[in-house]
Design a binder for these strands. Structure first.
Lengths: 133, 133
DNA sequence: ATTAATGCAAAATCTTTGCACTTTC
DNA sequence: GAAAGTGCAAAGATTTTGCATTAAT
């Protein structure tokens, strides 16, 4: 629903332009997703829009800044953008190059390392790498 | 001690050439380190050797394959190579771009997520990102 | 009309690769 | 001498940037 996506973007302080709306509509349809820039590009090109790759980089980074999605980097390949903003961890299937969410109640992290003075924890990234061999 | 580095490489099935020996001598001096390819390059250039960047990529990747070091990727920037092969986690200082080890007894991970049939856990990467603001 | 987003091409960054040359065994 | 490592340059892949054009308020 277009008006719904519009509200999401406006609430996050992001100007709802056509590309952003189309991307938001795909990303925020209720099912959490992991997409690369290239995948987002392909998806939008499948619709009426013909955005440039650079715009997808801009848009996805902008969504990150706005707190709508989060970036997951692994292995120096293309970055993933994750729509799940709730605390959670990741399962990475090295064979398939597929990323999957792990709920925080499937994994418990306890204990806090000694932090430098004044430092605060931004995020805790946990990636469990699995393979079938 | 050169003969010591030589033994380390040979034990890992890596041919002890000049560049590899010089790098091993720096990396395996008893103090665990995190280095980027560029840093390793700069260090060896500070010595008598004038290796190419490509050789450092080759050498560090080879050390990884041999199980002497491990690669840590974050944020799509240059990869880090970590000499600490014991199970441990990482603290990343976003301000300084500095990586620090966290001992496994400073942080406990309990519970195992449901894995696909036949899949085995390769590694568990944990990165705690901290900032001073 | 102002301000911001987009498209395009170029460039920046990190990494790998092919091939000639050199070292190691 | 055979096998493997290294240097160099080129190319690949991902991401960012500058600037003209277009869209949004």
């Amino acid at each position: 629903m277009s008006s719904e996506s519009k509200r999401v973007l406006e609430a996050a302080g992001v100007q709802p332009t056509r590309i952003r709306l189309a991307l938001a509509e795909y990303l925020f349809d209720g099912v959490n997703k992991h997409v690369t820039v290239q995948q987002a590009f392909d998806i939008l090109r499948g619709k009426r829009l013909q955005p440039s790759l650079a715009s997808l980089y801009n848009t996805l980074n902008e969504f990150c800044r706005a707190g709508l999605i989060r970036k997951v980097s692994l292995d120096g390949g293309a970055a993933w953008f994750d729509t799940n903003m709730a605390p959670h961890y990741h399962l990475y299937h090295e064979d398939e190059g597929r990323l999957e969410d792990i709920d925080t109640d499937a994994l418990k992290i306890t204990g806090r390392p000694q932090l430098p003075k004044g430092a605060t924890v931004r995020t805790i990234d946990v990636i469990i790498r699995v393979a079938s061999r």
